[in-house]
Amino acid sequence: MIVYLLCFTLFLVGLYGVLTQRNLVKIVIGLSIMEISIFLFFTLIGYIQGAAAPIVVRGQVETQFVDPLPQAMVLTAIVIALATNAMLLSIAIRLYRKYKTFDIREMRSLKG
C-alpha cells in the first residue's frame, strides 16, 4: 500500500511546483512530474504478483498475464505528454525571446 501513497506524494510535489514556481521551465518540470506519477499509478494498479509480461510466447503453458489495458492507456498518455511538453517549451522559448527572462513576474505586458 505504501507505493500508492508515495505515488500520491510525488503528484503533490509536482502540484506544489506548478503552484509556487515563478520560472516557466520549472512549471513545465512540475507538470511532467505530475504526469510521471500518474503513469506509475496506472501501471501499479494493473500489476499482478507473479504474473508474466503480456507477451504470448509459442509453446507457453497457461500462465497469468499482467493487465494489458492500463499499460496500453499509459502508452498513449506518454506520447501525448511528450507532445504537450514540447508545445509548452516552445511557448517558453518564444516568451524568452520577447522578454529575455523565464520569470513570469516580469512579463508585464501579458497582464489582462
Binding site: V25, I29, V66
Partner: peptide
C-alpha cells in the same frame, strides 16, 4: 512492473524531453 513496452517508450520519450529541455535552458 512487467511492462517492457512502456519502458522502451518511456526511455525514448524521456531522452527526447531531456534534449529539448536542455536546448531551451
Amino acid at each position: 512492473l512487467k511492462a517492457p513496452d512502456l519502458a522502451i517508450v518511456q526511455i525514448v520519450v524521456e531522452t527526447i524531453t531531456l534534449v529539448i529541455m536542455i536546448a531551451v535552458v
